[in-house]
Design a protein around this nucleic acid. Structure first.
Lengths: 213, 213
DNA sequence: TTGTTAGACTTACATAGGTTAAGCAGACTT
DNA sequence: AAGTCTGCTTAACCTATGTAAGTCTAACAA
């Protein structure tokens, strides 16, 4: 529905949002005009869980596409969490996974070279969207400009373009406009050293039995 | 007390630790032998809060110095959180701040050049340790080798050395061995574009009134 | 039709930072 | 005291990535 900023750095925030449809990204200024993308949110993600704990936001949240968002007053989330511990626990899991993704981004930007960085970024996006399961020929749409991919990976748009071309030349991906097809998923995953462990798929800690009886 | 690993990547973890004394760091492998430092813990920090939510760990936690750690069984933390909502809330705040620090590290590594990266790292460490308040002449001890600073900032040890020398030449810091003195705190902060906002000092969201009566 | 814009794509060139190698100092062993 | 280690330091060289500038296309507006 909305487009543009959902949250602004420095804001006092009193809502938690659920992204019903579309894509958003978190962004921080480095203090000299450069912007770094620090997170990505896809349909179903909860945005701004930290508002439950921190009075002001330290980063912007912006829409990448047209989005559909449910904004829930903080007090409602607090009441819900208090009365339904299982929901509080689920929010905690969500937050912990987002934190794990941030750690992996630090590794990606800090330790990998350009090619592996872009490859890893593509892998993560695909797995998070479940796109890699679907018909490979169909591919998926990456709703970001090369400039934005650069801001997420700590590279310039020019270099992102080079790396995408290299991945294509290596027969790992096919592309047209923003559509990406994995011609060789295994190969791409190997280049990126991608493992989905940090996304913590599968089981998490079950909600402890709060004996309120 | 202990030295070496506190937690290993892939472990099933059933304790939460409180770092009573010393320094620890979080570390992840990039899949090709390079190690990236993804977090730092100082005295008073709680380590492994994500174990409340995730069954396995996605990163190592290692001691940087001799450390004194209290390891608390997960079940005890769960019980404490259930019976004392204010404590659960405090843990949430702690976790949210750690997440905010991770975001800032992404910005630091992804958007800043070597000099500003190292400067920012020094600023963050100093502020987190409160060292910048104390007698500037005394300085503080940074318990990391230049190799480790490099792993935290995404640079090589050689380049960290160059940057430290440059910061010294600019009259911003003095050093001898691992002792760092801020000869010009304002100057260093400006170079780094450091603002402590992301550490969320001061007030956070007060614990909501859980009416259990 | 013409203009305007945003983004993909390319080339030529510049440089920050990586690599390798070596010297040196302090701490620890034997 | 000789040997070994780790970490700091410096220098020479190299390359991955950034910078600047331009072309091309698609979409859109007047």
């Amino acid at each position: 529905m909305a487009s543009g900023y959902l949250v602004r750095q420095g804001d006092r925030c009193d809502t938690v949002s659920v992204l019903l449809d579309g894509y958003c990204y978190g962004q921080k200024d480095d203090g000299e005009g450069n912007c770094q993308i620090v997170s990505l949110a896809i349909s179903g993600d909860v945005i701004g869980l930290e508002h439950l704990y921190l009075l002001t936001t330290d980063h912007n949240v912006r829409a990448l596409t047209t989005v559909d968002v449910a904004m829930i007053p903080l007090s409602a989330v607090q009441q819900l969490s208090a009365s339904r511990p299982a929901i509080a626990h689920a929010l905690g899991i969500h937050q912990a996974i987002n934190h794990a993704i941030a750690r992996e981004w630090i590794v990606n930007i800090g330790a990998r070279d350009g090619l592996r960085r872009v490859a890893h970024f593509l892998c993560e996006f695909a797995v998070r969207c479940d796109a890699w399961r679907s018909d490979t020929a169909a591919g998926y749409e990456l709703p970001m400009s090369q400039e934005q991919i650069g801001q997420a990976t700590g590279l310039t748009a020019v270099h992102v373009n080079r790396m995408l071309k290299t991945l294509h030349a290596a027969g790992l991906i096919e592309r047209s406009w923003r559509n990406v097809v994995f011609s060789n998923w295994e190969g791409l995953r190997d280049v990126a050293c991608f493992s989905s462990d940090y996304l913590h798929p599968g089981r998490q800690v079950p909600a402890p039995g709060y004996r309120t009886v």
